[in-house]
């Protein structure tokens, strides 16, 4: 459904992504793990066209092109078929929880307001926040904000939702509620690509784990295999380090 080949990206001479290829199939829940600075976040941002890639090919939602050749229309198509959950939530500060969700539906998808509100309420229901629909982001806790962020993404019913370290900015006691919502989503068959430091999520919820380091995919496969019997030395070292620190 989504295929990326040879994706490259650099900043000021530093190569962050050195040719990444990924295949995402419908219903996949893919976790991307790896040390910080390995390019995980940049990978999501370039696939979703938030940042321009330097090279590579994308096949997604009818677009089948090299990244450099994407025109405005292709970019629109890509953006309209993905959802994105940000590390810092990035809820619209001047909109209520409900408006945060309806905004994209009404403005970008031209859905009627009443219809949009119905969809938005359903989405809020799914993340357990119907009672907070008229709250502004500043009136919500970090965990609640992130759940609204997830509701905003699912309301658009995208082909795939990208999660960029969705729990990294949260206080430890708020991580659980967000992971719970993500687990429910995964169980309902939503296609998800998740950059995460939560090894429990990667191991228990996803059906594939990608280990990245230094702009490369070092290893990928079944979570069970990656966690219990990694074939690469780097993966082994990363996992022992991180599990030792938990």
């Amino acid at each position: 459904m989504l295929t990326i080949e040879g994706l490259k990206k650099g900043y000021e001479g530093n190569e962050i992504l050195k040719g990444i290829s990924i295949d995402v199939n419908k219903g996949d829940v893919i976790s991307i793990i790896g040390p910080s600075g390995s390019g995980k976040t940049t990978l999501l941002r370039t696939i979703t066209t938030l940042e321009a890639a330097d090279g590579g090919h994308i096949t997604f939602a009818g677009v089948d092109k090299d990244f450099e050749k994407l025109n405005g229309k292709d970019i629109n198509t890509i953006r309209r078929n993905v959802g994105f959950v940000f590390q810092n939530y990035n809820l619209f500060n001047n909109k209520t929880a409900l408006q945060n969700i309806t905004e994209g539906l009404i403005v970008a998808r031209k859905v009627k307001k009443s219809e949009a509100e119905k969809i938005a309420l359903d989405a809020l229901e799914r993340v357990g926040l119907s009672d907070r629909k008229n709250h502004y982001p500043s009136q919500l806790s970090g965990g609640q904000q992130q759940r609204v962020g997830i509701a905003r993404a699912i309301a658009l019913n995208p082909e795939v939702i990208f999660f960029d370290e969705p729990t990294s900015a949260l206080d430890p006691e708020l991580v659980g509620e967000v992971l719970k919502v993500m687990q429910d989503l995964a169980n309902s068959g939503t296609t998800m690509v998740v950059v995460t430091h939560q090894m429990s999520f990667a191991r228990d919820v996803s059906n594939r784990v990608i280990f990245m380091a230094d702009g490369h995919i070092v290893e990928q496969g079944d979570p069970k295999k990656i966690f219990e019997n990694p074939s690469e030395e780097r993966t082994k070292k990363f996992l022992t380090d991180i599990l030792a620190n938990v």
């Binding site: 990035n90 619209f92 994209g104 970008a108 905003r152 993404a153």
Partner: peptide, 26 residues
């Protein structure tokens, strides 16, 4: 915050729409 614009783009808005509806009011 730059993220406000990005969030607008990621729900499918045009940069112009995100500017008028999200960035400018704030």
């Amino acid at each position: 915050d730059k993220g406000q614009m990005e969030a607008g783009l990621m729900v499918g808005m045009q940069p112009r729409q995100a500017f008028w509806r999200i960035i400018l009011p704030q």
